[in-house]
Each structure stands twice: as structure tokens, then as C-alpha cells.
């Protein structure tokens, strides 16, 4: 390979930023703008602590958003994550509960905590495997499959908890992980893990072949195949990855609340989808980033907490989310069309 000449260097030093960066900036700006607007309207909104809370309180949805974003980029949905959150949490509790409790709901398998977590994770991965099987092998539309597996997962959780929750007879260290804080600060472990996950995700997206593959598959599945990419294997990995993240989220939540609640994570899959869409991830696939998703989460958090701050009832969130997603889709279509005319 010849060394690039001066002229060739000019070829690569493009003065134009990539579309992805443009969208990321757009979403970030909207997030900041909304934060400022909210600060004007809502008393006590404009504080560092508040901004931080907006992120830390949503660590679960943001984490789920990572898996959902990757799958969307590849051209697939994953609506099962909320169900997996419930399932893995319930399983973790069930496996860790000591045997011979007062009643059915208080008795478990008595496994050591770390083993219980592992088994719960295995349960989560099974659901992910089911997703992969139905979507990749049977070629059923992912929206239907993941709706089904979402119900399946949550359904198992409901059966295991008999419709409510399991929260008794747990080993002492069960609540450790979910409530652990860092070195004297009040930052909890799950939040740190979310941050680490985000960094890893961005790294994968930008720097790893695995990330690049996702974009190619989403952009043009036919060309991807004809270019030698094993689409089936890759999408399988993505579903397993998403399920794994959801499983860990569920385990951490069950640790935080020291209970396995079958309703946990309810509607989280939709919130994850919403923040991805707000963050500029294209439905058709081939475009989008977890960075955008992160700022999308920020937008959603600002809007919903401002609504609460303005004493709007929590019912407003449904309308606000709908409008936000609609505006996001319209704006991004318009923005990219104009830019690449």
C-alpha cells in the first residue's frame, strides 16, 4: 500500500462531520435546551444534583437501551427486555431463598448468592436464545417474537411469585450489590456499571469489528451476505447480549429492593425503545448510536420530571412520550434529508 500523498491526506481530512456526529449533537443540544427551558419553568430544577439524578435514576432503562439500540441498528426489535428484567430478578431471589420457609413464597433453592445470580442470568440468556431462534431461524418478524417472549418471561416470573413477589428468607448479602456505593460517595454500583456499559458500548460501536458488522447488516442485509457476513450468527449474538444486559439489570434491581417482583421492569422495553428513537436511531437500521440514545434518555428524563415538577399528573407521561417520539422521527428524517440533498 502506497503512503498517502499530500493530496490524498486532504481526501481524508473531511471538513464535514459524519452524519452520526451531527445527529448526536442535535440530540444533545435538544437535551440541554429542554433542561434549560425546564429550569425556567420549574422551581429548583437548575441544579447539578438534579441533572445527575436524572441520569442515575434511569440507569436501568439506559442500560436496557444499549441492547435495544444495537438491535435496532441491525434492523431488529427487542421488546422482551422488560420481561427479562422481571424474570431474572425473580429467579435470583427464588434461587437464593433458603429452603423450608414458612410458605411457598418464602422457600427457595437455598443456593449461595453468586450461584443464584448465575442461574438467573442463565434464565435471561435462555429468553435471548429463544428470541434468536424465532427471529433468525424461523424468520418471524421480531416485533411479534419479542412481544411473545416478553410475555413468556414475565409470565414465568408471575407464576414463580404467584402474581406478587418474593421478598422473604433471603441471605444477608443479597442486598449488597444493588445498594453498594462507591468510596463514600452516594453513587450506587448499578449506576457505575451502567456507565461502564456505556463506555464499552461506544467502544464496540466505533472501534470494534463487532460494532461495524451491526451497521453493515442493518444498512443492507443482502449486500452484507454477499460480502461474506454471517448475519444469522451476528444477530444471535446481539439478542444474547441484550438478554444478558437485561438479566444483570434485573438481578441488580432485585438486590436493590431485596425482592423479586413480577411487575418489575413493566413497560421498560417501551421506554428503552423510546429513548433509542429519541436518540436518532433509525427504525430501518444501519444508523444510530448509544450516545444518541443516552441523550435521548436525558430528554425523556427532563420532560417527565419537569412534568412532575409542574404538578402534572403522571398520566401526562404517555402523551409527552408520544409527542416526543413523533417529533424526533419527523425531525431526524427532515434533518438528514436536508443535509444529504
Amino acid at each position: 500500500m502506497s503512503t498517502p500523498t499530500q493530496a490524498n491526506r486532504a481526501l481524508s481530512r473531511s471538513h464535514r462531520m459524519s452524519d452520526q456526529t451531527c445527529i448526536n449533537l442535535l440530540v444533545a443540544s435538544v437535551a440541554v435546551l429542554l433542561f434549560l427551558v425546564a429550569s425556567l419553568l420549574v422551581p429548583n430544577f437548575f441544579q447539578w444534583l438534579n441533572l445527575l439524578n436524572l441520569i442515575t435514576n434511569n440507569w436501568a432503562v439506559i442500560s436496557l437501551g444499549v441492547g435495544v439500540t444495537f438491535l435496532l441498528v441491525s434492523g431488529n426489535f427487542d421488546l422482551s427486555v422488560g420481561g427479562i428484567v422481571a424474570l431474572s430478578g425473580v429467579l435470583a431471589v427464588w434461587f437464593a431463598q433458603s429452603t423450608g420457609g414458612a410458605n411457598e413464597l418464602a422457600s427457595g433453592f437455598g443456593l449461595p448468592y453468586w450461584l443464584a445470580m448465575l442461574c438467573a442470568l442463565a434464565g435471561a440468556l435462555t429468553i435471548g436464545g429463544l428470541n434468536a431462534l424465532f427471529v433468525v431461524r424461523f424468520r418471524i418478524p421480531s416485533i411479534i417474537v419479542t412481544l411473545g417472549t416478553m410475555m413468556l418471561a414475565r409470565g414465568i416470573a408471575q407464576v414463580v411469585t404467584q402474581g406478587s413477589q418474593r421478598n422473604t428468607n433471603l441471605p444477608a448479602d443479597f442486598g449488597l450489590l444493588g445498594n453498594m456505593t462507591l468510596f463514600g460517595t452516594s453513587v450506587k454500583l448499578p449506576v457505575v456499571l451502567m456507565a461502564i456499559l456505556l463506555v464499552i458500548a461506544v467502544f464496540i460501536e466505533r472501534k470494534m469489528v463487532f460494532g461495524r458488522l451491526t451497521y453493515w447488516i442493518g444498512a443492507n442485509p443482502v449486500a452484507a451476505r454477499l460480502s461474506g457476513i454471517d448475519k444469522d450468527r451476528h444477530v444471535t449474538y446481539l439478542y444474547l447480549f441484550s438478554a444478558c444486559v437485561a438479566g444483570i439489570v434485573g438481578i441488580l434491581l432485585s438486590s436493590e429492593f431485596k425482592s423479586g417482583y413480577s411487575n418489575r421492569g413493566m413497560l421498560m422495553e417501551f421506554d428503552a425503545l423510546v429513548i433509542a428513537l429519541l436518540g436518532g436511531v433509525a427504525i430501518a437500521g444501519g444508523f444510530g448510536s448509544v450516545v444518541g440514545m443516552f441523550f435521548g434518555a436525558l430528554i425523556l428524563a427532563v420532560v417527565t420530571s419537569a412534568a412532575t415538577g409542574l404538578i402534572l399528573s403522571p398520566d401526562w407521561q404517555f402523551i409527552l412520550k408520544a409527542i416526543a417520539v413523533f417529533l424526533a422521527i419527523m425531525t431526524q428524517t427532515w434533518a438528514l434529508a436536508r443535509r444529504n440533498r
Binding site: 424461523f138 418471524i140 411473545g148 417472549t149 410475555m151 414475565r154 409470565g155 408471575q158
Partner: peptide, 23 residues
Amino acid sequence: VPAYFQTLVIGAALLTAAASNHL
């Protein structure tokens, strides 16, 4: 069966129906 089995059954039914429908 108790009411809390419902979600599980519907989910399983959905997956089964989708699979057979597609096949």
C-alpha cells in the same frame, strides 16, 4: 389455574401460533 398464569400462557400461545403460522 390461578390468574397469574395468564401472561405466561398468552406469551407461549403467541410464540407457538407465530411459529406454526409461519411454518
